[in-house]
Structure formats: structure tokens, C-alpha cells
Amino acid sequence: MGATSGSAPVPVIDIHGLRKVYAAGTEAEVVALDGVDLRVEPGEFLAIMGPSGSGKSTLMNLIGCLDKPTAGSYRCDGLDVSSLDAEQLATLRLDKIGFVFQGFNLLSRMSALENVAMPLGYARVPPAEREAHARRALAAVGLAERASHRPNELSGGQQQRVAIARALINSPPILLADEPTGALDSRTGEEILALFKRLRDDGHTVILITHDAEVAAHADRIVVMRDGVLFAHEEAAA
């Protein structure tokens, strides 16, 4: 899904020497990320694993362009993120990144179809087109028949599928999922992880943030955050 340069695909995530320091120069200084390098190719299913406080949430926020690094470089689908202003960053998030969260983040007064279509409103897509796109997205996650249901009429797994459909509505190259099975029972969690694999097979790049090794094991590749440093899974286990 990334742009191409010659015959080699451009990585969807290309990070070098990324640092994030909070309260720099004070007694409260915290180095959340300490020189992180990460390259993610188009169509990969990557898990970023680590306990609370390891820096994985900070890394997720930087990958999602929700925060800016203290130092280092980040190219998102070929774009140098540091060169973008606030409006351009908002456009990048809309076009390049689909977010899936543990808490689903659905609007309770809206139907599944309306929740899924919502990002297209920000993209100024006409209402009739929005509905058609949203119906296709719901069908892709197996919920075509639940389009008119509100979140409180859906199971947890169905709500997470709606959230995934919403994340996919702009066909972003990157799907960024933060503990997406954390609020689900284990069987439903397995169904959601199987859905991510199908999305990967369809050409999406899936980045999964988790503290759970069993969840991470579903990915094609695992990297581990520890004290702000990123390790390959094999290195972390050594």
C-alpha cells in the first residue's frame, strides 16, 4: 500500500533514533523513548509488546502522529512527519492511519453505519457515498446485517468490529490497534485477531500494541519495548 521508489516498496513506517523526553532538564525528567529504530514494510502484521511504563504507548502515539518526538526522524508512508504543521498532521492521520482502541470509542447515539461513516464527514465525502462506503466496510468485517444497530445493541466483539470498519473506511495504509482485545473474552479476542490476519492478507499493514504475549504471537513479527528501548523479540528473550 506504500508508495514505490523504483521496484522497492517504501516502508509504511520508517523510524530512526526516535527519542521522547518529558520534563527535560528537570528533576522530573523521564526518557520515555531512547533511540528507537523501527521499519515496517507494507502488508506486515507487527506486534509491539511491553509492560505498562515500557514506552510502547509513547511509541504508539508518535507512530499515530498524536505527539511529536524530542529527537529522531519518522517517515509515515514516505512522508517526513517533522515537516508537517498541525493541519497537515491531521490530514495525515485521516488518510494514512486507522485507529482501533481497547474501549471501542463508538458514539452511543449513532447506529453502526453512522459510526463507521463518521470519518468520511471530515474528509468531505458526500452523504450518499459515505453510506455506500460504510456498508462495504461493515460487510468486510462481517456485520452487514447489523448496520442499523446502536452500540448498546451489539456484543463487545461486534462493537470492536464496528470500530475496525470505521478505522478502515478511508483505506489507510496503516491500521494501528492499541490493546484491541483487552476488553473482550478470549474467544472473541481470537476472532478479532483472525480478522486482523485477513486484513493483512488483503494488503493492510497492521500494528498491534499489546502487553499480552499470547496476543502478540498472532503477529508475523514481534518487537519488545523495555525501558524506552526497542528490541527484536529474539533479543528480548535472550
Rank of each mutant, 00 (worst) to 15 (best):
R75H: 13
P69I: 03
G72N: 08
P151R: 00
S5L: 15
R166G: 03
R146C: 13
D185Y: 04
P173D: 07
M118A: 12
S52I: 12
A219Q: 03
P173W: 05
V100H: 02
C65P: 03
G72R: 08
S108I: 11
D185E: 05
V36R: 03
N115I: 04
L184M: 12
M60A: 10
E27H: 14
N105T: 02
L38V: 07
H211G: 09
L120G: 13
R221N: 08
S111T: 15
P172D: 07
I207H: 00
I164R: 02
H149P: 13
M225F: 01
L195Q: 08
R124L: 04
L154W: 08
S73M: 10
C65Q: 08
D212M: 03
A213K: 11
D185C: 05
C76N: 06
E41Q: 13
A90G: 01
N115M: 05
N170S: 12
Y74A: 08
Q160M: 09
T181M: 03
E153T: 07
Y74F: 15
T58Q: 02
L46M: 10
A177V: 09
V81Q: 10
M118D: 05
G156Y: 07
G43P: 10
R39Q: 14
K197P: 02
H218C: 11
V215S: 00
D80L: 11
T4A: 15
R146I: 09
